[in-house]
């Protein structure tokens, strides 16, 4: 009976954005309605009749619902207009990231002057920049703005680590190469850093949920089926082309595999961009 009542009340309020207020009203009404129905049953009604009588005696809930709708709409709008000041944690986070970056300049300068080797200097700076960018990404994603909620910490951490690995994966092999290291070593470092982070990005991109604050009380618009189809087709095309280019490379000259696999990196990049593009159209 309790579940039946709850379902009934849910259906009554189903076109209102469920705020704490609405949830509590439903809970209150459910308890009272249950008491009343139990009284009807105690007076000899069967369950079905008692439920019907109880629901009928609620009367016209239109006024109640309209008031709640106005209130919840007003609340959502107020929240949108309210500027979101940075909290202490984020201020500290951004400051730390900036300090690390500036420190990177200074230390890199010193390293360069002591060693007289540009590559050492740049390598030092890149190390600092990687840490700093990881911090920026993490705090940027977890920050709540007027239109979006902050990302959950574990997810933001994954993005942060993946982008740090990507950054390191681009610059470290480049520096190793310029330093005259063997190409095998250069590629090993590149693959070890880039591939896991691309896998991470693809996973994160595909499982991304909208953090948009609901602006319309009736809920937010989902992607329409048409654009989901377009997205899937484009995504399929990207990977087929990438595979085709890779295979053509090998067929032309089999040693080309060393280079042609790079198209998969681009394909993965396009996939993420595609995902982001369709995500941003969700409004």
């Amino acid at each position: 009976m309790k579940i039946k009542i709850e379902n009934y009340l849910d259906s009554l309020f189903d076109d209102i954005h469920e705020t704490k207020q609405v949830r509590e009203l439903k809970e209150e009404m459910a308890a009272n309605l249950l008491d009343k129905i139990n009284d009807f049953i105690a007076n000899g009604d069967n369950k079905e009749k008692a439920f019907k009588k109880g629901v009928a005696s609620l009367g016209n809930v239109d006024e109640l619902i309209n008031n709640l709708r106005t209130a919840s709409q007003a609340k959502v709008e107020r929240n949108l207009l309210k500027p979101k000041p940075l909290n202490k944690k984020h201020v500290m986070g951004y400051m730390t990231a900036t300090v690390v970056l500036l420190l990177g300049f200074v230390v890199a300068g010193i390293v360069y002057l002591l060693s007289n080797n540009v590559i050492y200097g740049v390598a030092t700076f890149v190390s600092f920049a990687v840490v700093s960018s990881a911090l920026y990404v993490y705090y940027g994603l977890t920050q709540e703005t007027a239109f979006n909620y902050g990302m959950k910490a574990p997810r933001a951490l994954a993005y942060s680590v993946a982008s740090a690995a990507t950054l390191a994966g681009i610059f470290m092999p480049l520096l190793l190469y310029l330093n005259g290291n063997r190409l095998v070593a250069v590629f090993t470092v590149l693959l070890l850093l880039i591939i896991p982070s691309i896998i991470a990005f693809i996973y994160l991109g595909l499982t991304e949920k909208s953090r948009e604050k609901i602006t319309a009380v009736s809920g937010y618009q989902q992607l329409n089926p048409q654009s989901v189809k377009v997205k899937d087709t484009l995504s399929g095309a990207i990977w087929i082309f990438a595979t085709a280019i890779f295979l053509i490379g090998i067929f032309v000259r089999w040693q080309y595999w060393k280079y042609s696999w790079i198209v998969f990196l681009f394909a993965a990049g396009f996939q993420v961009v595609l995902e982001a593009f369709f995500q941003s159209r969700r409004r």
């Binding site: 209150e28 005696s57 609620l58 009367g59 016209n60 006024e63 109640l64």
Partner: peptide
Amino acid sequence: SYGYEIYKKIIEKSDGLYELKEATLYS
């Protein structure tokens, strides 16, 4: 008091002559 009790007391005080609808009470 709570919702249903208030509702019953109103019926009781009016000797069953007046039954307020619950929705009115919640408002």
